[in-house]
Design a protein around this nucleic acid. Sequence first.
DNA 1: ATGTCACAGTCCCTGTGA
Length: 253
Amino acid sequence: MKVATWNVNSLNARWPRVEGWLLQHAPDVLLIQETKMTDAKFPYDALATLGYEAAHYGQGQWNGVAIFSKVGLLNVTMGFGDDDPEARIVGAQCGGVQFYSCYVPNGRSLDDPHYLYKLAWLEKLRTMLATRDAAMPVLVGGDFNVTPSDFDCYDPSVMVGATHVSEPERAALVAIEATGLVDLTRVLNPDLPCYSWWDYRNGSFHRGWGLRIDLLYVDEYLRERATASYVDRDARKGEKPSDHAPVVADFSL
DNA sequence: ATGTCACAGTCCCTGTGA
């Protein structure tokens, strides 16, 4: 089973790239973030032509998450079941695995209310994962907007005082791991940066100024069966790329 | 460090978010 997560920064603007990527890589499951579209505009028919069922939790202009699957799509859940109006998490069971596609709030700055919303959102995710059905393998992927460690930053010295590197954000990831999950890309590539995002500005991609903020958390069952995890940097090149590259994992199930 | 992109509305430019 091939699985990937990709923040596409508008599925409307990115559809030609997404369609091409699906044809080239044929993942069994693709977790998408930032569709930035209403459900009415979601390309269900085009995905069906490519062999994918899809679950979309859309909001409109901002946010929006989806799961594309070639291996079935059951028990779709949207949000955490509270009154949060932002469309940032969708879940589904695909091929006997519980998947979640997550778009963690950015936080904006450490003194912004949105930063507290980010921490609260991560705690809601942790609570949900702590009470999950342990009988079902689980993969939680998405744009976490947090670097797990300084090694996931091109230059930690320029990130001091910023979001994405703060101790509370990293502690929130550690607490999520404590529910029985591992950061698969890092576990399989302890010595590679595996950056997944580069700012559109400053020629950041070509200068190597990246961050690893798109993560795949898996339980022990999936970790034991994982054969590879990598970033498809080619998807960050060329015409109208997203500012994120897909993060892929292969499993022998 | 700020050299970009996408969105909606004020609608062919501007403010906002990332």
